[in-house]
Design a protein around this nucleic acid. Sequence first.
DNA 1: CCTGTCGTCATCCTTTCGGGTGATTTTCGA
DNA 2: TCGAAAATCACCCGAAAGGATGACGACAGG
Lengths: 154, 154
Amino acid sequence: MRAVLDVKKHVLIYGLLSGSLIAVLKLVEYRFLVVEHSLEIYGGLVATVFAGLGIWLGSRLTTKEARVVVREILVPSTGPFTVNEAKREELGITPRELEILGLIAGGLSNREIAGKLFVSENTVKTHSSRLFDKLGAKRRTQAAQIGKDLGLIP
Amino acid sequence: MRAVLDVKKHVLIYGLLSGSLIAVLKLVEYRFLVVEHSLEIYGGLVATVFAGLGIWLGSRLTTKEARVVVREILVPSTGPFTVNEAKREELGITPRELEILGLIAGGLSNREIAGKLFVSENTVKTHSSRLFDKLGAKRRTQAAQIGKDLGLIP
DNA sequence: CCTGTCGTCATCCTTTCGGGTGATTTTCGA
DNA sequence: TCGAAAATCACCCGAAAGGATGACGACAGG
């Protein structure tokens, strides 16, 4: 959607510029027509302007295709912590599960987590169960350890 | 180097095309000149062709660039870890208890710790109980968290 | 020699965790 | 608006963890 709109916008701008330019040329053509070789001047002028316009348009239309290849491995303790979204997505860990992982690592019991999140203890247990599955952990302490290693929690 | 050559090549082609185009226009201008409104037709023709040329040139000139490769590598954050002996003494934590704290934080169960240290599971439980007392922790996850905060474990 | 600390082990009991299963509601994108 | 993913909750059961208490040997220091 975004890209289509951008293209439409550019085409619109291009059209408007072209229209006004032609109007200007139409206005001034009679003055230069009396001069000898005015046709060449006129043609060159039009060619130059439209070539520039075309170049601009061409640039606008194609620079969007910039391919960005991001190869990330792991980020340790540099500056403020940011969640490793790639890993999170890769393991299919939901935001809620990640939140609970943080609280587990913080040393809270299931009951305390339930209280802090205003949900039932059973809910916390299901979340943590699925979390352990996705992390390949057997215990909450192990989940905390793995979570830190993967950069999911500070 | 490669990019510069490319640009030069493009400019050259552009120039040649422009030149021949102008020549063609020059040749045919007299035929259309007799027709009414030929100037508008001529202008539109030139504008169209050069705009297309410009777009082509603009595309050629810009699509090749913008290939970004970001690489993040793991770094040993704070050098080799050293135990906070002061805190350890202050809390009266014995070396054995500290050892077990490390294994707890590593995500091991009491049984696994017992196996690794060649002691009974009961022994591990007594150690960890006393450890939790000294740390003021209620759970092993909390003990791990506190231990990290106090600099007792990496 | 006697005492305190440390490490070791045990037994009993309660609480917490974790696995498994099933179900309902929310949310969100096609 | 339809369906998939996410979030919610419940119940059961076995395993793990934790609290309390007692005991025993080794060893250092007074």
